[in-house]
Amino acid sequence: MTPMFLLMAAGSLAVPAVALWALRWAVGHGEFQMPERAALLPFDEAEPVGEATDIILNQRTSKR
């Protein structure tokens, strides 16, 4: 039981430690800076923001 207990104690310390380290790393490397820019990734010059695609149904009614 003792090795199991040690393992669990070490694990419960290690997991938050790794998580904290990863968070620090991410902040340090600018992972959280300007994340809104990442929201623009599906768009490009060919199909920029503001341009709807796949508008194929009920064309006639909408044009009138």
């Binding site: 990863a22 490397h29 990442a38």
Partner: peptide, 14 residues
Amino acid sequence: MNYGPLLFLGILFT
């Protein structure tokens, strides 16, 4: 979140 390995680690750990 641009760093692939970090993403991989998170995916595996969870």
